[in-house]
């Protein structure tokens, strides 16, 4: 299916479509207090598990809370924290990768063995372990996911820096008096940005999945606040009578992740970044 989409739209229009739809999601998340028709945590037990109606477009859950409002507020957590994780992992990863690749020697060995250690663990188990130690909560999840995601940026960044270092413009910059920091800033980071953007887009999808998965397990956001993963969890009790309680947030997660993956694909094609490199 991916191939078909790519054939029908040339790379750039796919990028535009993905970006527009994603920014729509982000806009809704950002404007949640103004868009959402109800307070997402307001309980109305007389109206519980209501079917879609003009008052509640997507019905209500087992405590009578408006599903649409909860989905909109849930987007804030899912998307907002994914962006936070993305940004912090990117910052740490690029910095560590550049330093590691540029300095080489024992520093490189220590940092890369650290990456190997983190990569050798299944992500979710590592995150569960961290949450197990520090207790459930969004901050802990944020920290844990950041800790496992930066290694991917660091890895690719380091490999690119090592291949860049061989090019003589780095030596020429050194000779013309640029400090190591200036070389990293002026020459190395601009030259690694494309693969980093691609991998970052793909990692965003993973971050959203991970946050939802952890919330589904009850380790992330705590009730009564809404988050897509925790909404699926709450819906499991009514899977026979009201399956849409799980379907709504599930579809949203799927949509956003697909959009990020498509965007990543399109960008990697656009920038000529091969999948093998990642």
């Amino acid at each position: 299916m991916m191939k078909k989409i790519r054939q029908n739209t040339n790379g750039s229009s796919l990028i535009v479509v993905c970006l527009v739809l994603l920014s729509l999601f982000f806009l809704i998340a950002l404007l949640a207090p103004w868009i959402a028709p109800y307070d997402p945590v307001k309980v109305d037990l007389l109206n519980k598990l209501a079917d879609p109606s003009t008052q509640h477009w997507l019905g209500t859950d087992h405590l009578g809370r408006d599903n649409l409002s909860r989905l909109i507020y849930g987007a804030r957590i899912s998307l907002g924290f994914a962006v936070l994780i993305f940004l912090s992992a990117l910052l740490i990863g690029v910095l560590v990768g550049c330093i590691s690749g540029y300095a080489g020697g024992w520093l490189d060995t220590v940092l890369m063995r650290m990456c190997d250690g983190i990569m050798a663990f299944p992500n979710l188990i590592l995150v569960l372990g961290i949450v197990g130690i520090f207790g459930p909560g969004l901050m802990q999840i944020l920290l844990a996911l950041m800790l496992v995601q930066w290694v991917y940026y660091a890895r690719i960044c380091r490999n690119m820096v090592i291949s860049l270092k061989e090019r003589s413009f780095i030596a020429a910059a050194k000779i013309s008096g640029s400090s190591s920091w200036a070389i990293i800033r002026r020459h190395i980071i601009p030259n690694v940005q494309h693969p980093i953007v691609v991998i970052g887009t793909l990692e965003m999808g993973w971050a959203i999945m991970d946050i939802s998965a952890l919330s589904f397990l009850g380790l992330g956001i705590q009730p009564p606040n809404a988050e897509w993963g925790s909404m699926i969890h709450e819906g499991t009790a009514y899977i026979r009578s009201q399956p849409e309680l799980m379907i709504y947030p599930g579809v949203l997660i799927m949509l956003v992740v697909i959009l990020f993956n498509l965007l990543g694909e399109a960008l990697s094609e656009r920038y000529g970044v091969s999948k093998r490199e990642l």
């Binding site: 003589s168 413009f169 030596a171 910059a173 000779i175 008096g177 002026r186 020459h187 030259n191």
Partner: peptide
């Protein structure tokens, strides 16, 4: 050292790889 090195500059063989392609 930085000032000492100022007086020694270089032209490399591979003209393509001795310039940053983005500048």
């Amino acid at each position: 050292r930085k000032n000492l090195r100022r007086d020694i500059q270089v032209v490399f063989q591979d003209c393509y790889s001795s310039v940053n392609p983005l500048m």
